[in-house]
Structures are given as C-alpha cells and as structure tokens.
C-alpha cells in the first residue's frame, strides 16, 4: 500500500496521461460521430505530449531558456528543464494539427456524400442506398 502511494505521488503525471489517453482512445472506439472521434484522437495525441513533457521535467529547474545568457559562464544542466522533449512535442503538436486539418477536410467530404456524420447511419446508407 505504501509502495502504491509513493508510486502514485511520485508519478501521478504519468498516471494522468494514461487516464487521458484512455479517454481519447475510448472516444475513438466507442463514439459513432466522426468529429467526436477526431476530438478523441486529439485528446489521445495531447495525452502523449503530456507524457513527453513530463519526461522533461526536473525538480527545482527553470524553463529551458538561458538566464543571463550574455554572461559567459558555465551552464549547469541541473538548472534547466530538459529541452529535448519540448522540441519533440512541438513537432508532434504541429503534426497533430495537420492531421486534424486533413481529417476535417475528409469529414466534410464524407458529409457531402452521406449527409450525416454518424457512423452507424453512414453504414446503414451504404447497405441500403
């Protein structure tokens, strides 16, 4: 039990990202509306970004922008949060918005063809046109 509590307190960010991810995944699987699915996808992707950002965090460190950079001096890596996950997640966010854009475009097309966004209705229409 104690172990569990220490786990929970020391890693709650990691846990939270899993909860979020599962919410997103659930929406993608269980929701029939296409835009809901896309929202689920976005949540899923942000959850992973949250995880990455959590990797980068460092106790007692400040944001990864050098303070007083004009002064020449030794930079101690302990002082700054790990910038690499941030870089990766910037890219991932861009990718996710690009994906969202394309997905919405496709949704528009789907709506043009089937006049509904509900998956079950679309399937119904495909079966009995």
């Amino acid at each position: 039990m104690e172990d569990f509590l220490t786990q929970l307190t020391s890693k709650y960010n990691f846990w939270a990202y899993i909860v979020l991810m599962m919410v997103g995944l659930y929406a993608m699987i269980a929701k029939g509306n296409l835009i809901k699915k896309l929202i689920g996808l976005s949540i899923f992707q942000t959850a992973i970004m949250l995880f990455y950002v959590a990797i980068g965090s460092k106790a007692g460190a400040t944001i990864p922008i050098l303070r007083d950079h004009t002064l020449k001096g030794v930079i101690d890596f302990v002082e700054y949060i790990n910038p690499l996950p941030h870089v990766l997640m910037l890219t991932a966010i861009v990718v996710s918005v690009a994906t969202l854009g394309v997905a919405l475009a496709l949704v528009l097309r789907v709506y043009d063809v089937h006049q509904t966004l509900e998956e079950d209705e679309i399937l119904e229409k495909i079966k009995n046109p």
Binding site: T46, G56, I63, I65, I81, I93, V97
Partner: peptide, 23 residues
C-alpha cells in the same frame, strides 16, 4: 506549470485558436 513554455505557447496557439476555429 511544468515549465514547457514553447510547447505551451504552441498549444495555446494551436489548441485554443486554430484547432477550435477549424473544428
């Protein structure tokens, strides 16, 4: 709050602004 300013900036710009507008 986690100190990821650039990511937060991007998310603010993307999630709050463009993503919502596109949706």
């Amino acid at each position: 709050a986690m100190g990821a300013v650039d990511v937060a900036f991007t998310e603010a710009a993307i999630g709050a602004g463009i993503s919502t507008a596109l949706m």
